[in-house]
Amino acid sequence: MALPLERLLAEGRDRWRRLDELLDVAAKAPAWELGPERMREIVRLYRLAAADLNRLVAATADPELIDPLNALVGRGYRFVYGARRVESFWGVRRLVRFFTREIPAGFRSGRRAVVVASLAFGAGALLGFGAVAVRPSFAEDLVPGEFFTSSPRERVAEIEKKEERIATVEQAADFGSQLYTHNIRVSFLAFCLAAATVVGGIWLLFWNGVILGAVAASYVLDGVGVFFVAWVGPHGALELPSIVFAGAAGLVLGRAFWFPGEVTRGAALRAAFPTVWRMLIGTSAALVLAGLIEGSFSQLSAKTVPYPLKIGVAIVLFVALSLFLFGRRAAAEGAGREGEAA
């Protein structure tokens, strides 16, 4: 049974307009300001409009008539069925819980991807190191121009002889902020590549490992391996895992995207979002810290800070990061689920 089109339009017009107005109000005001009365009215009018849309579609195919009502019902649907976060993200306690519990929980639920990403990076590093150790001329091909110095030893001697490159807080802050904004961008790129292609992300991690291994080998071969560790270590202890983590987060999402299994792709992606988002925020935070260290502490030469201290700091940072993210398995697993529920 179809109502005559005209009567449907005449009947519906007023209540559609009212629903439209109410939704306008609702978009601007928070739920408690709207009040239960108007809330109920929205739901009632939405149901009516939905039924009207069904009848209208049965009666006509004219998009000029259907489109406005279609849009209105879509808008009502979003309002009525869109789940809203009751809790604000920005409370202090919420933020503390996010950083101390939910981020580690995210990393733990993505730990398999972290292992895969670490293996790719580690394999690359070993290969790069091995290749240069076996035949030093490989260094020219593997190491990008800006890092390639014909003799690491001379470079180290030069750095140790000259004034400190980073002499003031100002320079350190400037350099540090440049570094971490750049590094976060790079880690986001690694994330995207891994998520969109899976293979691309693994390749990127592997290749970065090769470069690091090759640079390390050329320093070690020239007898200045300790300098290298002291130079890269303090920030590298956070920065290198961060790139691996970003790639791992991408692998988690890429797996959901390409291999959703028995659920739909959308459902698989939505299940992966909490893990991915926590891992990426954690990674970005670690990169900010790493950038600040790289801009200051890492650049200091042995005149100011002895190598053992720098290497010690590197070890402490790496152990602390690993323990923080993966250490408290049994105790924090419950907290992770709690975070999931929230």
Partner: peptide, 20 residues
């Protein structure tokens, strides 16, 4: 894509995607 409002995580992921 289900016609609902997008979540914080979704918005974050789609905007990080801008890099690529």
């Amino acid at each position: 894509a289900r016609g609902l409002p997008l979540s914080l995580e979704q918005s974050f992921v789609r905007n990080v995607g801008r890099v690529l």
